[in-house]
């Protein structure tokens, strides 16, 4: 493209190339779909993985695309969970999908309100504020035990058949298909968002806020927007857990949950959307395996993984991921220049 004059369609295609579906992505989702039919006995844990993957995806939106470190993403997870629980126990909205959407919207509203608190200040202030918000919500859920069941958790969440057709069975088949479908739809939406002009401007803001504002971008506006969206995603994840587990508890707000989701995302890698899902998969399988060896103390190994990741260096982990991705890409049917 050196001497020949540039033409609009070619350049447009070049700009949009980032958004093109890669072969490995298609394989990924076909494999995910296949698990519905091929491993029915593992649907309970797969449901959890899908939900955690969605939760980690929400964190990726703010950490990977806006650079905000949050130690309180569980605030939104828990809020969404209780919203869905209360909608169900009080028979306000019994249609699961509608209830899910409402819980997500309510959580996004909470995200919008609290986003103004994380705009100012350093990483440390943001860590403290996000942590504080999660603690406050947990405390509130604990105090208003008449409404939330307090420390006993929210009991008696029953869930109507999906679209009035599919009953939630005790083996979790419906629950898994439902969770995976929600994850897929929200993933598509997130993929669209990050590849849009808005998404591009987010990457600009993350890369250099000073310059972003010098080309006319309202840095705070973008932060508020993505924080709100991410809160909504986390809320949907929490609501999904309530619906599929038919239970909501205070530990949904806990610091450990915020920390776990951060770990998942770090294992999988930030800033390419799949990191959270892959991280959730690895995390959950690791937890399952470690817990079967040392039931109570698996947290020790999680901690060890965290320390090891940092000491080894996330860059090196990134290189490893890059190498793996390249290998997968090499399996593509037709050749394509990266």
């Amino acid at each position: 493209m050196s001497a020949t004059p540039l033409n609009t369609p070619d350049v447009a295609r070049l700009v949009m190339s980032r958004a093109r579906w890669r072969f490995s992505e298609i394989v990924f989702w076909i494999a995910a779909l296949a698990t519905i039919f091929l491993v029915p006995s593992r649907h309970l844990i797969l449901t959890e993985i899908a939900i955690l993957g969605l939760f980690a995806l929400s964190l990726d939106l703010i950490l990977g695309y806006a650079g905000i470190i949050s130690l309180g993403q569980a605030a939104f997870f828990g809020f969404g969970a209780y919203c869905a629980g209360l909608l169900a126990t009080h028979q306000l909205v019994t249609e699961p999908v509608l209830a899910l959407a409402l819980a997500g919207a309510a959580t996004a509203a909470l995200g919008f309100v609290t986003s103004f608190l994380v705009l100012r200040g350093s990483d440390l202030t943001r860590i403290m504020v996000t942590l504080g918000i999660a603690l406050i919500l947990r405390e509130l859920a604990n105090r208003f035990d008449g409404l939330t069941g307090g420390a006993d958790g929210l009991q008696g969440v029953t869930i109507e058949p999906l679209f009035g057709l599919f009953r939630f069975d005790m083996f979790g088949h419906t629950a898994y298909a439902y969770s995976l479908a929600v994850l897929f739809v929200l993933f598509l939406l997130a993929r669209r968002i990050v590849n849009s002009p808005f998404g591009l401007s987010l990457r600009a803001v993350k890369g250099n806020p000073l310059r972003a504002s010098a080309v006319g971008i309202s840095v705070n506006g973008r932060m508020v927007a993505i924080y709100t969206i991410a809160a909504g995603y986390a809320g949907v994840a929490g609501a999904l857990l309530t619906q599929t587990a038919q239970f909501a508890s205070l530990d949904m707000f806990s610091f450990e949950r915020s920390a776990d989701v951060l770990l998942m995302l770090i294992i999988g890698g930030t800033g390419y959307l799949y990191g959270g899902i892959i991280g959730a998969l690895i995390f959950k399988l690791m937890q399952d395996w470690l817990a079967s060896m040392t039931p109570q103390y698996w947290q020790f190994w999680i901690g060890l993984v965290l320390v090891a990741i940092v000491i080894i260096g996330r860059e090196r982990l990134e290189q490893l991921r890059g190498a793996i991705r390249k290998r997968i890409l090499r399996l593509r049917p037709q050749k394509h220049a990266a």
Partner: peptide, 19 residues
């Protein structure tokens, strides 16, 4: 593209692909 979209008022579009 970021700067031009912003100036043309489409910098907040989240439903279209950049480009």
């Amino acid at each position: 593209g970021v700067a031009i979209s912003e100036r043309q008022g489409s910098g907040r579009d989240w439903w279209r692909l950049a480009g």
